[in-house]
């Protein structure tokens, strides 16, 4: 009982007092909430693309009485897709350079690499649009057959991911330009970069499994 009485008067029995507006507790892991969230999201996204890729693989060779038209694999232009895959791969490199620049507080260089990354991403998307329109001209629309539905859904989902990434990169460029993001918030760029690299590794898988493996 004496303890309790003492506790009431002096230090709070239950807790530490150094927790006010200016002394936020460090996180348990020492990692920021934002970065942990992004990795959790990427882990979750693995399941999303896993489901889409397996849907495509399980659908691409199935035929029924009403199947018509070519399959997506019949129309692949491997040299063209190789180039756009290479472009996306290089955009990962420019992204990582943007991150290291801002970590060294080289803001101009960071802005340049951010824009380059966004531009390379846009080239990839333009290539995908070109590929899709080519397929459509050759008679392979979204509704033509099972393999086309699965192919366009899978690559379309990836394309939407890339496009969102481009929007984020351009936003980051604008925020860096306006001075809203300085070197102290390099981690924001790093987190966007994680997302961007993830989109790239998904394409590494799609390029090998969907395009190259016969």
């Amino acid at each position: 009982m004496a303890d309790a009485a003492e506790a009431q008067t002096s230090e709070p029995a239950y807790g530490r007092t150094d927790w006010d507006d200016h002394h936020h507790l460090p996180t348990n892991t020492g990692l920021t909430n934002e970065k942990v969230t992004m990795w959790a999201f990427l882990g979750s996204d693995c399941l999303l693309f896993g489901a889409l890729i397996s849907t495509y693989l399980l659908s691409r060779n199935r035929v029924g009485p009403a199947t018509r038209g070519p399959t997506a694999a019949d129309l692949f232009d491997i040299p063209f897709t190789s180039v756009s895959s290479f472009v996306l791969l290089m955009s990962s490199m420019t992204m990582v350079l943007a991150v290291t620049s801002i970590q060294r507080a080289e803001m101009e260089r960071c802005k340049m690499w951010l824009l380059t990354t966004a531009a390379l991403g846009s080239i990839f998307i333009a290539g995908q649009v070109y590929e899709f329109t080519g397929f459509y001209r050759e008679g392979l629309g979204f509704t033509t057959n099972l393999s086309s539905s699965a192919f366009f859904t899978l690559t379309g989902f990836h394309g939407v991911h890339v496009s969102l990434g481009i929007v984020m990169l351009v936003t980051m460029w604008a925020l860096v330009t306006r001075g809203n993001i300085g070197p102290e918030r390099a981690e924001t760029i790093e987190i966007i970069g994680l997302y961007w690299h993830f989109v790239d590794i998904v394409w590494i898988v799609i390029f090998a499994v969907v395009y190259l493996i016969p």
């Binding site: 942990v36 990427l42 882990g43 979750s44 489901a51 990962s92 992204m95 990582v96």
Partner: peptide, 26 residues
């Protein structure tokens, strides 16, 4: 790409656990 560009090789193991769980599960 995951180890170098995404820094997983140098970063906290927590990130690896989160990502690899999703990946292996998938």
């Amino acid at each position: 790409v995951v180890s170098y560009f995404m820094h997983l090789k140098f970063d906290s193991k927590v990130f690896s656990y989160l990502f690899v769980t999703g990946l292996v599960l998938a």
